[in-house]
Design a protein around this nucleic acid. Sequence first.
DNA 1: GAGCGCCCTTCTGTATACAGAATCGACGCG
DNA 2: CGCGTCGATTCTGTATACAGAAGGGCGCTC
Lengths: 248, 248
Amino acid sequence: MGAPQHDVASGRASDRAYAVLRRDIVEWRLEPGTVLGEVEQAERIGVSRTPLREALARLVADGLARQQRGRGVVVSEVSLDHLDDLFELRRALETTAARAAARAADRGPEEFDALAGAFLAAADSPAPAQDLDRVREHYFELSGRLDALIDGAAANPYLAQALRQLRVHLERIRRLARDDLPRLRASAREHAAIARAVAAGEPDVAAAATEVHLFHSLAHIAATAQPAAPPAAPPPAVHVPGQRAAPA
Amino acid sequence: MGAPQHDVASGRASDRAYAVLRRDIVEWRLEPGTVLGEVEQAERIGVSRTPLREALARLVADGLARQQRGRGVVVSEVSLDHLDDLFELRRALETTAARAAARAADRGPEEFDALAGAFLAAADSPAPAQDLDRVREHYFELSGRLDALIDGAAANPYLAQALRQLRVHLERIRRLARDDLPRLRASAREHAAIARAVAAGEPDVAAAATEVHLFHSLAHIAATAQPAAPPAAPPPAVHVPGQRAAPA
DNA sequence: GAGCGCCCTTCTGTATACAGAATCGACGCG
DNA sequence: CGCGTCGATTCTGTATACAGAAGGGCGCTC
């Protein structure tokens, strides 16, 4: 995401705790079902229980965690079973946003045009496969910029909020899929189509291009996703949540 | 809303504070721009600052309040300017939900049929104008049941969450409009059409009926809404918060 | 040997106490 | 007479201390 994201070193301890926990959940360092003990996480992050509690409340509000009866909060489950639900909502929101942005694009379509060009350039660049990480990073940055641009052009705070909340879940579940160079390039072209349609002020085309992209995106994720552990470090190490050996 | 809503007398003080504040904001007892001082509200509600703080965080997450730099949290602004934005999102979400519900209606369309009948009965009942409050209450209860039924049939937790958050804002802004008996009856018939389409398992029809209802609903609110103070007690009394009246 | 009940431990939920920051008012200066 | 600046006051943000409740483990009983 090219967007600034929440800074992990932000001023308030409450924000820090939220940012850390959110990042760890999205990046699957905290797996679904993990109990987020207050004292435990407070010590780990380095804040007191009060701001951590606030962070947990925000997490629950986001849907990244849920409150168990008496047992505190646990990281909410997410699996490929939710893919269709997630994309059903995503389709509703993003087509609406694309339509609204296209309607409002009479002022300043240049940015969308420029972004479309950047997407096409990224799609056609002869990047070797070894730079997959760089390509992916660049692609995500462009995607984030397009999202932000559409959000801004749509100028609908309620829609923007709904999209923001959706994207957290999307990013979490997307880590289950393994993207490759061909998919990234195809995705870049799909994004370019969206950007061009918005720049042209064509709401229906923008919505259609968005649907096309979402269809392919969903198909790719469903095809390449692994059912369980996501990052490239499945077997060993970390155990972030577990107990600390040293007594208090 | 016929839905259980949040009980104001719930167990945890945090929930109590949230329920009270949310109710006061939605019912316009706390007007937009009101500063929610922590000590002030904590004393008013009868809880300590800690749970109240948690409640404020949830309010901010809901979008009912926003956090000002250093100045604490204030009740978020809402005006008729947001009507179009709100209904743009509402259209996206509710048509999607209606479609999903209609697709899943092969199991148990009886409830939707029954609800459609109840709507039609309410629309045709010869209630005198003096019972407007009763009629309105009955209508809202039926609407809430239909919403809940659709949410359940759609079986999409992400969509349900987005709808839940939207409905809070909807209820707040709806208090600006003054409904009358003809509108309530027409609305009941529109709801009946939605329920019947869902029961029939016709996604497109259900979505179309939803769009029809939203169009009329928006038109009515825009036509009858007053720009500023909502409840039937504008001039005297309460002054729940500190002083306002002075624009920023 | 298995089921049940009791006690202990641990955790959440709440309240209070403390430190830093920002704001508002007043005073003095230009 | 207006503006900048300084100070007191109030507020938020954070940490800690305390009480109630739930869970798990153990022993007792059947």
